[in-house]
Every structure is written in C-alpha cells, then in structure tokens.
Amino acid sequence: MASDLGGVPHLPAVTVEPVDLTDRLDEALMVQALAFGLTHAEVEVRRPIVRRHLGQAGARSLAALTDTGRLVGFVYGMPNDRAHWWSTVVEPYLRATGSETWLDDAFVITELHVHPRFQGRGLGRGLITAITDGAAEPRSILSAIDIESPARGLYRSLGYQDLARRVHFPSAPRPYAVMGAPLPLSRGN
C-alpha cells in the first residue's frame, strides 16, 4: 500500500503505510500537538483516548513515514458506532439538520494530522483516501473545527459536505462542523 508522496526539495520522500499507532503513539501525539497546537497536558489527556480508540473493532491506522522511518503524519478511524462518545455528542446536531442517518454505515475519520513542515504536499489527501479506500462502509464522516481552513478545503475537495455546524464538544473551546462524504472519496482537486 506504500505510495510515494515525495518530490518537494529539501524534504525527504514520504510514503503512506499501515502502522500500529499504539507502538508509535508518542510520535503520533507529537505530530498532533504540533499540527493542532496542543499543550503537553492536552496531549496527555489524549493518550488514553487514542489507545481506547485503536482497540475498537475495525479500527485502522496509517502513517506518513519518511525514508528514515520518521512519522510525519497519521490517520486513524473506525466503523461508526452510535454508542461511542463522539456519536452521542453529534447526534442531536445531525438530527436537527435531518442528517442523523449519516451515523449509520459510516467510517469515522477519528484523527488526521500532518507535521507542519510536511503540510501542503498532499500527505493529508494521501492518508485519508488510503484509509477510506479500505473501508467496507459506503460513506465517511468526520468533525473539523468550524472555520475556513486548509483542512476544511481538503475535505470539501474530497467530496465531504457539511452535515451540521456549530457543534460543541465538551471542553473544546471552538465549535466544530460534522462533514460526510460518499465513498470512495472524490479524486478531484
């Protein structure tokens, strides 16, 4: 499944490969901290959450690795389960927009992060398309901070559309948007 995403001068070539993120959790959380601006305390709160997610049935993860094996991006997700915390938070927002059925038969992109030095090279696109290409579900859902950002632009270019906006997660300072796309994802730019 390795796909080459190199080609930018002064940065090493990168491939997208399956990885057991539990074995590389420190690296993944460092990338997330840099990409998302997390404090050390916020990273430590996420550590057991990520471990729990990766233990869920059907959870899968991929990493963007340099030719020296350095992890510079990752994605993980799983088939959605309405009993999961995320689903219980977003369900009322989706119900209010008539989009509640998106919680069924969907593959959730739980986390997708790329090291800031490696952003803008197509790594996020490569990670998300590779993981959803392996999903058995007919659609994918995710949540992203509800601002116009490169991440939201990427998701839209892949076919994701807003299903609910101004979604508030407990302890998150900013609102999120829930987005959904049919699978396979669009390969358009």
Rank of each mutant, 00 (worst) to 15 (best):
D4E: 14
L38S: 00
V16D: 11
L25E: 06
T39E: 07
G7C: 11
L34P: 10
P18M: 07
V19S: 09
T22W: 05
E27S: 06
T22I: 01
G37S: 02
L38E: 03
L21C: 01
M30S: 03
G37C: 02
R24S: 06
E27N: 07
E42M: 10
A28I: 01
D4A: 07
D4I: 09
A13R: 15
V8C: 09
H10D: 13
A41I: 02
L25K: 07
T39C: 06
P12W: 13
L38Q: 05
L34T: 00
L38P: 02
A35W: 09
H10W: 10
V8A: 09
G7K: 14
H10E: 13
G7W: 15
L38F: 04
D23M: 12
G37M: 04
A41Q: 11
T22N: 08
G7F: 15
D20W: 02
L38A: 00
A28S: 08
L38N: 02
A41F: 04
G6K: 15
T22Y: 03
D20I: 00
L25D: 03
V8M: 12
A28D: 04
V8F: 09
P12V: 01
G7H: 15
V31Y: 04
L25V: 02
A35T: 03
D23C: 07
T22F: 03
A28Q: 08
A33Q: 14
G7S: 10
D23F: 02
L38T: 00
L25A: 01
T39M: 05
P9M: 11
L34D: 07
H40F: 01
V16W: 15
L5D: 08
L34K: 11
P12C: 03
L38W: 12
A33W: 08
D4W: 10
V16N: 12
L25P: 08
A41S: 08
H10K: 14
V19K: 12
A28E: 08
E17S: 08
D20Y: 02
P9L: 10
G7I: 09
Q32K: 06
M30G: 02
P12L: 10
P9T: 10
D23S: 09
E42F: 03
A33S: 11
H40Y: 04
E27W: 11
H40T: 01
P18H: 14
D4N: 15
V8T: 14
V14F: 13
R24N: 04
V14D: 13
T39R: 12
V14T: 10
V8S: 11
P18D: 10
R24C: 00
V16I: 12
G7T: 11
R24Q: 08
E17R: 15
L11D: 05
A13T: 12
D23L: 13
Q32Y: 00
L11Q: 13
Q32E: 06
H40S: 01
R24E: 03
V31M: 06
E17P: 08
